[in-house]
Simulated scan of single mutants.
Amino acid sequence: MDGTLVDTEPYWMETEVAIAEAHGGTWTHQDAMALVGNDLLVSGRAIKQKLGLPHTAEQVVEMLLDGVVARVTESVPWRPGARELLDALAAQDIPCALVTMSYRRFVDPILAALPPGTFDVVVTGDQVSEGKPHPEAYLTAARHLGVRPEDCVALEDSPTGAASALAAGARTIAVPNHVPVPERPGLEFRASLTDVTVDDLKTLPDRDTSQADLR
Rank of each mutant, 00 (worst) to 15 (best):
V6F: 14
E62G: 00
G146T: 02
T73Y: 00
L53T: 11
D31I: 11
L35N: 09
S43I: 01
P95W: 01
I173S: 06
Q92H: 14
T118Y: 02
V17M: 04
S75F: 03
N177G: 12
Q30M: 10
W12N: 02
T209D: 14
G37C: 05
V128W: 08
G24W: 10
L139G: 13
T73M: 07
A112Q: 11
H134D: 05
A57M: 13
I110L: 07
P205Y: 12
H55V: 03
H134C: 00
T26W: 00
A141I: 15
E156M: 07
A167N: 08
L65K: 01
E136K: 12
V121Y: 03
P109N: 05
A20E: 12
A32E: 08
I47R: 09
V76Y: 04
M1V: 12
S43T: 13
P182Y: 09
H29S: 03
S129R: 11
D87G: 11
P80M: 02
P159D: 04
L214A: 08
A162S: 12
D206A: 11
L65P: 00
G81A: 04
D213H: 13
L98P: 00
N38G: 06
Q92P: 02
S102H: 00
R45G: 13
V60Q: 02
T140C: 04
T28E: 14
G24S: 06
L201K: 09
V153R: 12
L166M: 14
A168Q: 07
P10M: 04
E150D: 15
H55N: 10
E16H: 13
V121Q: 06
T26D: 11
P180S: 15
H55I: 05
A57R: 08
S43C: 15
A97D: 08
P135E: 11
V60W: 03
T172G: 06
G3F: 02
R83N: 07
P159C: 10
M1C: 07
T118L: 10
A32T: 03
T140K: 08
A90V: 10
D87I: 00
E156A: 06
V123C: 03
L41M: 14
A154E: 05
D120A: 15
G24A: 11
R83H: 03
A57K: 09
V179S: 12
G131Y: 09
T26E: 15
E188L: 10
T100C: 02
T73K: 14
E62N: 04
V128Y: 08
G3V: 05
A165F: 12
E156H: 03
D120H: 13
R143K: 15
D151S: 15
D7N: 14
F106Y: 07
A174V: 11
L40K: 06
T73Q: 11
A82V: 01
G44F: 11
E183V: 15
A142P: 04
A22M: 05
T73L: 07
V121D: 05
I47M: 14
P109A: 04
T73A: 11
S210N: 13
I110F: 01
P10C: 09
A174W: 09
M1E: 03
V107F: 05
E21R: 15
F106I: 02
D39P: 01
A57Q: 08
V153I: 04
L41D: 08
S158G: 07
A112G: 03
V196W: 08
L64V: 00
V175R: 01
T209P: 08
P133M: 07
A88R: 15
W78K: 04
A91M: 10
A142M: 06
L85P: 12
I110Y: 00
D199L: 12
A82M: 06
D87P: 01
G44L: 12
